[in-house]
Amino acid sequence: MFSTLDFSVIPLALPAIFKGLAFSLELTLIAMIGGVILGTLLALARLSGGKWLGRAAKFYVDIMRSIPLLMMILWFFFLIPLLTGQPIGQEKSAIITFTLFQAAFYSEIMRAGIQSIPRGQVNAALAIGMTYWQSMGHVILPQAFRNMVPVLLTQTFVLFQDTSLVYAIGATDLLKAAENAGMLYGRTVEMYLFVSLIYFAICFALSMLVKYMNKRIAIIR
């Protein structure tokens, strides 16, 4: 049954596969950085005590978290051209969607992280004369980030896997590249197996990193 498999097409397809992989990684990285920054701001908005601001942030987070990502990808892909009057392409649309979508999830993580820092830390920072923003920037957020690194990475692990969903709008990520190459050479089965292996290797490495971080942080505490 395996006799019909022919992996000799893989070297031919490698350049295209790498291009797809590069986009998957690029999307992950941009959405992670953008998502963490935006998410931290959302978390601060929710914790600010400002009624209107806090509610708006909560509404945004709740909406993003209750709608399937696949649906969100379609929304942005079809809606942005309606709003701006011109299509912006699958790749850009994907980057915007993922950043805004992931921000909601990162914000929940950062909120938990900030809340895990004892109230006394803020008081101590304020007592030595820091402003609110200084106490956040120098005292609270650095501690919150450090505590949350494993959880943030776990979210990134989910994010990386989710990038495969850009398939829905035809952006050429790792999975789509495999499909294209499979069709081009008539070797879909081999391509899917090969790309699964790439996904597995990356995700496994990432999950090992999370495990390692968890252990290290457990020791620091």
Binding site: M1, F204, S207
Partner: peptide, 25 residues
């Protein structure tokens, strides 16, 4: 580890397109 480290969509394609090819003819 096996079912967590590959994206869902990829797993679906494996079951749908690859597994039938791996079965006896």
């Amino acid at each position: 580890e096996f079912f967590r480290n590959v994206p869902l969509l990829m797993q679906l394609f494996i079951w749908f397109f690859v597994v039938p090819e791996m079965l006896p003819r």
